[in-house]
């Protein structure tokens, strides 16, 4: 079944179609949710909530393209992750004054494989990880992040800087361990 037909069937609450759509996106969405959440269980919970909201609000959605559909599902998943983080992890950001500006070293991450980056991102503290995910991976601007997380743009920027600094530190330590091992 093509995606538009599948979405129509899902909008009519046909369980088979919903299962098909779930199978189509589940893996991708779980990977996304796991980047935000601390554990597999909470990631799965966020994904389920996201799919549930997606299926129940499908009548509001007008199909434009596959990319638009994927983007919409992703957006719902991200929102669910943030909601769950607020609820379970008590997501709080370090204030703008406390955070210090750190010079960017973006080149460091380019040398890493996707899996390595993923692992590093999931090891970040919740606050850094959330902003880093939203900015570097979802592609949101600081203004949007500030609105989404109810923080100032400055806090968003400083959180991102700290996340990068933390990542660089982790990569350097890994490199040292690798060289020492040789």
């Amino acid at each position: 079944m093509e995606l538009p037909q599948l979405l129509k069937a899902c909008a009519k609450h046909q369980l088979m179609a919903q299962k098909q759509l779930f199978d189509l996106y589940a893996r991708q969405m779980y990977i996304l949710c796991r980047r935000y959440m601390r554990s597999n269980e909470t990631a799965e919970e966020a994904m389920m909530n996201g799919f549930y909201k997606f299926f129940t609000s499908l009548h509001k959605f007008t199909y434009a393209s596959e990319a638009a559909t994927t983007a919409w599902i992703k957006k719902m998943m991200v929102n669910e992750c943030l909601a769950l983080l607020r609820k379970k992890e008590h997501l709080m950001m370090v204030s703008e004054v406390e955070a210090e500006e750190i010079a960017d070293h973006p080149v460091v991450l380019d040398d890493l494989q996707a899996e390595e980056i993923y692992l590093l991102v999931t090891r970040l503290p919740i606050g850094y990880r959330t902003v880093f995910n939203l900015y570097a991976i979802e592609g949101l601007g600081h203004k949007e992040i500030a609105t989404l997380l109810n923080i100032t743009e400055g806090t968003s920027k400083s959180q991102l800087s700290k996340a990068r600094q933390w990542l660089q530190k982790m990569i350097l330590e890994q490199n040292k361990e690798t060289h020492a091992g040789r």
């Binding site: 080149v107 991450l109 494989q113 996707a114 980056i117 993923y118 570097a136 991976i137 592609g139």
Partner: peptide
């Protein structure tokens, strides 16, 4: 950096 990570994450 963002575009690079986005691409890598999409490929994951």
């Amino acid at each position: 950096e963002g575009r690079s990570i986005q691409t890598k994450m999409a490929q994951l």
